[in-house]
Design a protein around this nucleic acid. Structure first.
Lengths: 266, 266
DNA sequence: CCTAGCTGTTCATTATTAATGAACTTAATT
DNA sequence: AATTAAGTTCATTAATAATGAACAGCTAGG
């Protein structure tokens, strides 16, 4: 059998039409994706099985990652896990993100005025990634949201982005499948498209427990001063607290913030 | 001229005796190190000059990183910067670090009892990397410390680690050079070694403005229940507030915490 | 408006290296 | 001690990363 990298499972699902310029790097980076909150530690064999790559290849790649601090070997379990270099890079990214720095004070203000949690997220392919959270005064236990990936079609923040995105992206999201998270999730194309239309008319999105049961969110898009869509803000809280009148109030506050931010983002 | 990867500058300084198993991956990962707080954005030519790699190679590598979300192209500057995939991986690491989760409550307790900031750091080569911070009640503006890298020889937390490390590591740190950060930095080997000896006798380290002028720290090592050195805790504050009697009190509180943690870390 | 100069991007060829799979080592389990 | 599974090493070969020249796109200056 003639070996071809494109026979391998790891590539088939990832590459659409663009082949990576440096295939060995691409393969290596794909391995890191197998480390997630559900599986923070993995073994060579496990990764080999998951990725379809040979044990020895996985070993060589992990060794190199380890040498660079991207992967560490857990001393007690003997398994591999993500390394502290990731934290260092993350700190660089987080502490130098100028957009986030501009936006944060406005988020804080809204969080205080509304006494609910405000999130900032940016699109990343067909998903969104949370980049910052502002918590209302008095919130003690706030789990870390920075870096968390979520669906675009069933979060307030995601739908605010999607509603103002190109048709191409909407179609990609739909094609990827609208997996229901709760019984409220808009899991068919028509319902989602109608909701996006309503979002555009209102100027803000509503996520009524579509992602998480009992949580209601309001989202608004963030544009820069040349009108380009950058990301979105949302405000979330328990559905029992976020009643219809609150939704309107929250949306106003978010839109005020978004308008002010618009003038500051290049 | 016969091309050899080892002629290139990027490798010479990095690899001691171990050559990376996957050279192309190693080279690519080295490029990411050029993105730091002082230079969050860089161009192809710039990276090519810095690394000694060809423009086209840098381009191919960055394209691949970009495809995987590790690098993004800034829309306004046109330059490359770290991508949001880093945040996602960082969140996985941060939210699944069991050692940190165990230690955090003890840090919070000490921070409250002492009304000063408590840090947790782990060794990473000849440096330390901060992994968590606990701030006393009332501190509003706390810069993000997670992932920050610092010197081992001139921080309280670093010297607590170094004092209980193998001679091999101490020698490596010394050989790397004891660059002075302030006029208080112990920048010659003898002074540092004496200080480490004192640290071992006391059971805690003192950083008297050696890293940052006006800041004094106390550090204690963290061992697991089999006696293996894991990392260190420190408590820091303005020198005017952290007087000699406070130093002793802080050290006691940190040691109490370290003792309790010891029983919990595998 | 045009040109010079810089940076980013593309491409074909060749020399390097990543993939391969068998064998060996180590650790855990029966 | 035997057995299994995982991790690690290695030589060979097939695949690919490095190379450098050329092209494209942008900006500044005449």
């Amino acid at each position: 059998m003639v070996y071809s990298v494109y026979n391998n499972e790891w590539l088939v699902c990832k590459v659409q039409e663009n082949t990576p310029k440096v295939k060995s790097l691409y393969k290596a980076l794909c391995l890191l994706d197998y480390f997630n909150s559900d599986h923070p530690e993995r073994g060579i064999k496990e990764l080999s099985d998951l990725s379809g790559m040979l044990k020895s290849s996985v070993y060589n790649i992990l060794s190199t990652f380890q040498m660079c601090g991207f992967i560490e070997k857990d001393s007690s379990s003997g398994k591999y896990k993500l390394g502290k270099k990731i934290l260092t890079l993350s700190n660089v990214l987080y502490s130098t993100d100028s957009a986030k720095a501009i936006i944060k004070p406005y988020m804080d203000k809204v969080a205080e005025e509304c006494s609910e949690t405000v999130f900032l997220a940016f699109p990343s392919g067909t998903d969104i990634i949370y980049v910052e959270g502002s918590y209302p005064p008095g919130v003690l236990y706030a789990r870390s949201i920075v870096g968390v990936k979520a669906e675009m079609y069933c979060t307030g923040i995601g739908k605010a982005i999607l509603a103002y995105s190109d048709e191409a992206l909407i179609q990609m999201v739909v094609d990827k499948g609208l997996e229901p998270f709760t019984s409220f999730t808009l899991s068919d194309e028509k319902a989602l498209r109608e909701d996006l239309e309503k979002t555009r008319q209102r100027g803000y999105s509503i996520d009524n427990m579509e992602h998480e049961y009992g949580i209601r969110c309001v989202g608004v898009p963030l544009h820069n001063n040349s009108g380009h869509l950058m990301g979105a803000l949302s405000i979330s809280g328990p559905s029992l607290r976020v009643m219809d009148d609150k939704v309107v109030f929250f949306a106003e506050k978010l839109q005020e913030a978004a308008n002010e931010i618009k003038g500051l983002l290049k």
